[in-house]
Nucleic acid binder design. Structure first.
Lengths: 233, 233
DNA sequence: CGCCATGTTGGAACAACGTTCCAGACATGT
DNA sequence: ACATGTCTGGAACGTTGTTCCAACATGGCG
């Protein structure tokens, strides 16, 4: 291919948008959301800023594209035939996103930021589609499908966003149960007049399992959907 | 008080943390989330960065505090007696946050960021408390109160985050219906094989009313809660 | 009444970041 | 061989968050 291996090929592998995105995701995974800088990127791929800007418009587009890539991958894993019922598939979609956030801790903040900036960008339709098909299969009448699907999507994104700190974020030295303990203790020391409920559920909060809680929320909404739209008489 | 009105009192009014927070919120409201810079702040309050850093640790704390202030104000408006049922009060709390985001467009992104960074900071317990009291009044058994309340909270935060762009964000020249039209049209041009559902609901999406849709989601979850935990036989 | 101690201020300076600009290297078509 | 358009990497710019410090105010003590 190349013309006789010149003294040192300009690059061992051509710089491409995909390679940049890949490096960006790896950098984010390794060093957190603050770790993705153009300086670090130019060092990782061995090049200058100009080269990157040739393939990508700006940092915002880079982050958006990275997010879209990861979300698309998470939704693609969907086993397709493993789950039998529509409910099961919805849980699978939700867990897919949940796990993706667990693998890529920066994803939560990024998803949230991106959705609030351009609510119907590339990511939202992906999720809407995955869930919507199952909502349809659930027998929800056409006029209510958008509402039901949106509700599920909003819950998933809200819950996923808050469950980002599942373990690693706190860095080494502080593990999950320690963190839950500290939070629970802090809640119990809140003003009894202003925070009676929060104080009361402090124990449930300490013992709770993120994933189980997340699924319980999904089931609650699914129950609501079936209650409001009973499956075909 | 002051010693004989010197040539020009150092400040007409002392610089305090509250005054800084107030100025920060005003700046955010006026110029958007990107408009809050220490330069702009020092200009607004007539001072230097050092003075601000004496009262506030860093920009993160400033944003967190501003967010907390606004959220607390939004939850305090709660009419307390206006709504009769627990369901009604939950809707009121939700709408309070919804409206706050409408008044302070930067709040959505900030809330999302803040919740994903420190999930159980100052803001979450506030919301948890407001909703939790009503969930308790709903007759949900104690062991399930945390789950039900969390589900509602996650939905509210997820939906609120995405509904930030209600009007203003797009700037003058592009109003809401134009935006919805464009989005709806874009959805209809998606790949029929990959996005059948999204294409099908494109029309519902164009016609939808954000607030009504938001409340419909709340009602769906409330229906789920009552279905799973029927009110005291 | 003067003077230090303490709390507070504002400006200058710094490092890091996103971004722009440009001179030049590479591959390709003629 | 040369001209052309694509692609590269480094130097430079403006802006941001933050730090540092000399100056100021005020209240208590001698």
């Amino acid at each position: 291919m190349a013309s006789r291996t010149r003294k040192s090929e300009r690059r061992t592998e051509a710089l491409t948008r995909e390679r940049i995105l890949e490096a960006a995701v790896e950098l984010l995974d390794a060093t957190g959301e603050g770790g993705l800088t153009f300086r670090a990127l130019t060092e990782r791929l061995v090049t200058g800023p100009g080269a990157i800007y040739w393939h990508v418009a700006n940092k915002g587009e880079l982050l958006d594209a990275a997010t879209d890539t990861v979300v698309a991958a998470a939704l693609a894993i969907e086993p397709a035939e493993s789950a039998d019922s529509p409910q099961g598939e919805i849980r699978a979609v939700a867990l897919g996103l949940f796990d993706a956030i667990d693998e890529h801790p920066w994803l939560a903040a990024q998803l949230a930021t991106q959705l609030s900036r351009s609510p119907w960008g590339a990511v939202a339709p992906r999720i809407l589609e995955s869930i919507g098909r199952q909502v349809r299969a659930l027998g929800v009448p056409e006029g209510s499908q958008f509402t039901a699907t949106s509700a599920l999507m909003h819950y998933i994104l809200g819950a996923a966003g808050q469950n980002a700190a599942n373990g690693r974020v706190l860095g080494p030295g502080v593990d999950r149960s320690e963190f839950l303990d500290a939070t629970s203790r802090a809640w119990k020391e809140l003003d009894p007049d202003d925070f009676p409920f929060t104080r009361a559920v402090a124990d449930q909060m300490r013992a709770h399992d993120d994933q189980a809680e997340f699924l319980a929320g999904i089931d609650l909404i699914l129950a609501g959907i079936t209650a409001v739209h009973p499956p075909t008489t």
